[in-house]
Amino acid sequence: KELRLGMSAPEATPWGAAAKAMAAKVAELSGGELTISLYFNNELGDGQTMARQIARGRLDMGVLSNVEASLVLPEYGLLNAPYLFTSEKQADCVIDNHVGATFDAAFRKAGAVYLAPIEVGDMMIMAKSPFRLPSDIAREKIRTSPAPTDTYYVQATGAEAVPLSVPETMPALKTGAVVAITTPIIMGVAGGYWAEAPDFIMTDHSHQIGALLLSRTTWDRLDESQRNALTEGAKAMSGLRQGVRAAEKALLAKATAGGAHVIELTPEEKAAWMAVAPAAQAKIVASIGGDAGEVWAKLQAASAACAN
């Protein structure tokens, strides 16, 4: 049986490598009975389209970003809320021990099987000039991804959020329509935005968690051993954690060598960025609606349990 897996990332990225490892593992575990065909670079349509097609059963599987997976289950977007996690260790602990329990059933109900969380990496702000505090960018225009989490956080900092799609981002930086952008580290550096925005403010305001989703329609057609092969094989995606962090380091080093500046914040400066998060979090929970309040309480409890 052949399953189609679509993703936005190119083949030569940590996500491409992890997907290939998973496909190999699934083939091995199922004794060749289940093969996964990989389609990179949005070959099967953009992430939003893939997300909807998984829920509807046209596409079998997808490696989706948090924003895309949130189209299947809006509450999943809460994982992106600013400073839900204050350290990488805390994030890892929540993802390893609590995320499945929080979202498995809800994804099932929404038509998808949640096979694995997908590490996308930390967020930073890339700017045309160096700054360290939210007050430095008051009323400046900052590009956000067109999603509630990112946009409401930037608004809470006192800056002017300008939600822009990826193709519109570079022209906006070039013309000065925005003076900075929020972005996951890898996408920001690899996208070449640092030619226009060479100052990287390492706010780490959110730890991006995507999802490996399988269509429930597909799941229902598989037998027990095939399902086991998939759930076991999906564990190969946990290798992404190392892969993504190594890629972040390598890309930041490459950009620094090319003239970009990485601005690490002091604990006091970081505290100023965190101080504005609660207002944004409340607004995000309200805007998502549905079970968002309940899920948010669970995530905060998980986050607290992982604090040490």
Binding site: R52, L71, P146, A147
Partner: peptide, 14 residues
């Protein structure tokens, strides 16, 4: 009908 039962949503505003 499929879209309705699968809960297809608009981006951003859901």
């Amino acid at each position: 009908l499929e879209s309705m039962s699968a809960g297809d949503r608009a981006a951003v505003l859901y």
